[in-house]
Design a protein around this nucleic acid. Sequence first.
DNA 1: TCTGGGGTCCTAGGACCC
DNA 2: TCTGGGGTCCTAGGACCC
Length: 420
Amino acid sequence: MKYFGLVDCNSFYCSCERVFRPEIRGRPVIVLSNNDGCAIAFTKEAKALGFGEMCEPFYKLKDRIKKHNVAVFSSNYTLYDNLSRRVMSILNGFTPCLEIYSVDEAFLELDGFDKYDLLEYGKKIRSDVLQFTGIPVGVGIAKTKVLSKIANKLSKKQHGVMVFKDDEEIDQILKSFPVKDIWGIGYASSTKLNMLGIKTAYDFKMYKDEQLIQKLLTKAGRQVQDELRGISCLPIEEAEDKKNTGNSRSFGSSVYTKSELREALADFCTNSAAKLRAQDSVCFSLTVFIQTNSFNDNAPQYYGTGSQNFISGTSDTLRLIKGSHQVLDNIFKSGYEYKKGGVLLNHIVPRTENQMDLFDEHSDDNEKLGQVVDLINKRYGAKTIQSAACGSNQAWRTIANFRSPKYTNAWKDILRIKLG
DNA sequence: TCTGGGGTCCTAGGACCC
DNA sequence: TCTGGGGTCCTAGGACCC
């Protein structure tokens, strides 16, 4: 019998901050999004104080944060990525078949493991991850991915581990599990299901008219229904190369000029190209967008977007920057207050499948330049070397007033321990 | 010019996820 | 004053072909 485990890190970003700051354990912690814009992660202590609404603007929370002595951090993605890798490497020791679903979640295939005590196995996973990384996790184990998600959610009340084995017990749980909280059922689908009188996961599981479900929720919704019934439709998916990638951000402060946007786009291209090279791929097309502040009702609004195709695939930062600037020339309109922009790379293929073009002047892309830049930045820290097009003025740079040190990847930030 | 049936490929946009 | 970023999958429909 095959089982699926879902391991999910508790309040992951907050837990990462706590690993190197023992004094804030037990204290409420909140982590902010880019530009310290809004709150995106909360510990259970913070939730108990009434925080926890996803993406609530930081400025609205300031007074309450001060009142309750909440520890606040800007997001520190380098730290979170690093700790995520450590967690995943521990999990890899528990199964040969691991799917890293997100920075803080992974599915484990447990094929033939039911001859062991799955509850004990779950506890062992939990205690090992905590011991070796300092990150607390919850473990849910069931016969399908959708059910393991539900088990995981309930594990929070069960000392961190929940195993679904007994069918009657599962039905009891599904009867009090709202259909809108099922993995794969979002707002649109749950509204449709509610209109059919389906309120709980159990209602959905037992609903007989499968053709209607297929029609209303498409194939994806039908698979969720079967997964609730214990019929596995969603296999573990091995990591694959990204099919699209990109980089976009809200600006630290508003920008008005084309030259500032050129700098920001150069920065986005630099980040995106590094991602491409990291998976040894090239892209054939690039999309740029720029937009004004949609929250400001009083200012004129504009959203500009445009694309450019490349004759041969590329991961050359300089070529991408040049392309993004050409698109910008087409879409830029002066007189607007720009607040956000981004670059998306499409039609990505492995470098080995790149189609060269005899008449393309770029066919001799300097791959080695990119590789050397990546190596230098890896060894000496991000942005040690970059294109001058990224500029130095950078009013658009992200604001991060509460950023923790790079404990795991900058020599100057490594903790020192004094003995005696 | 009109008429039919069958097929592929591509793109935009919706829905969902963390 | 201050409002996140990065993905995937699916479907409908247009363009094109025989």
